[in-house]
Design a protein around this nucleic acid. Structure first.
Lengths: 160, 160
DNA sequence: TGGGTTATGTTATGATATAACGATAAATAT
DNA sequence: ATATTTATCGTTATATCATAACATAACCCA
């Protein structure tokens, strides 16, 4: 089995980034929604790193690219991307990350490395199934989930 | 099978609250840690409701009970309770709730009702097992987790 | 009873997030 | 083409959540 490239393994990152943008364009076009310049730039900013960025970090970079530098500029773009499933909010970090699987896997499980801040999305079906079962047993109807693990990625674990 | 009383079902709430305090006392005594007046009051405040309270809500009530009314007063008490497993932080809400199972189940799964704000802790073993398996497959070492579902409790679902 | 440790009060500030409103640009209808 | 509507963006102001730093007080135990 060939290990899939993810945040925890070195890979051609331009590929992630380009693919991410392109898929975003396709998805939004099919929904008749607009990937405006701020939104596009915000997504590029998130795609540039496999880690979560705070809204104010994103804002700084947007401002550097010539957009307004008031908080709503960043929050609005991020909110839009999150609504469209192109980005996620990582609750543990109060920060945002580009979605790596925008068409599938829409309720992600995050692995957050506390060593290098890398963030990976990992397949969620079984975790989600278990959570749904537990919720169902309590008579609870699940609408949204956040499932996050903090720990060490392989490299940081090896270094420790 | 008799349904266990939980946040989603009516029950003698004084029982929850009294039991919670008593268990806290036992646990802290066995660890030679002190349940000081602020900490005790903060825990009572959380135990008073089956929902998560923001730090500033807790602070208000602490102040009303005669304690200092500056944010660190609440945050310190809450931090202590969380460290000792007597309370949890609900990341989705940036808020805190008393732990309902202080000796077992130390990494909870939360069910948050968006209708009435009730919060339930539900058994987590299977969910955690699935999450650990997914993390392991990525070579990731899990240290802490947050697993939270937002949705509707039985009563709010029925009302909807 | 003195000296370390733990806990609390207080001031100040940092970090995260949203409400509200006016200006602009895009889509739509005629 | 132009008016009308709707979506987006810039900006001001403020709300909400959280912690750093330092002084004072309580506890503990040798």
């Amino acid at each position: 089995m060939t290990p899939k490239p993810d945040a925890f393994h070195s890979h051609d990152h331009r590929h992630c980034s380009d693919q991410g943008l392109q898929r975003a364009e396709e998805i939004l076009q099919s929904r008749k929604l607009r990937l405006t310049p701020v939104r596009r730039q915000a997504l590029q900013i998130l795609l540039a790193e496999h880690r979560a960025l705070g809204a104010y970090e994103v804002l700084e970079r947007l401002a550097a690219a010539g957009f307004g530098n008031q908080p709503p500029v960043a929050y609005r773009a991020l909110e839009f991307l999150v609504e469209q499933g192109l980005a996620h909010k990582v609750r543990r970090l109060n920060a945002f990350a580009a979605c790596m699987h925008p068409e599938t896997d829409h309720a992600p499980v995050f692995l957050i490395c506390r060593g290098c801040n890398a963030l990976a999305e990992t397949p969620a079906e079984q975790v989600r199934a278990a959570l749904n079962a537990a919720a169902h047993a309590a008579g609870f109807t699940v609408e949204r989930t956040s499932i996050e693990a903090l720990g060490l990625c392989p490299a940081c674990e090896a270094a420790a």
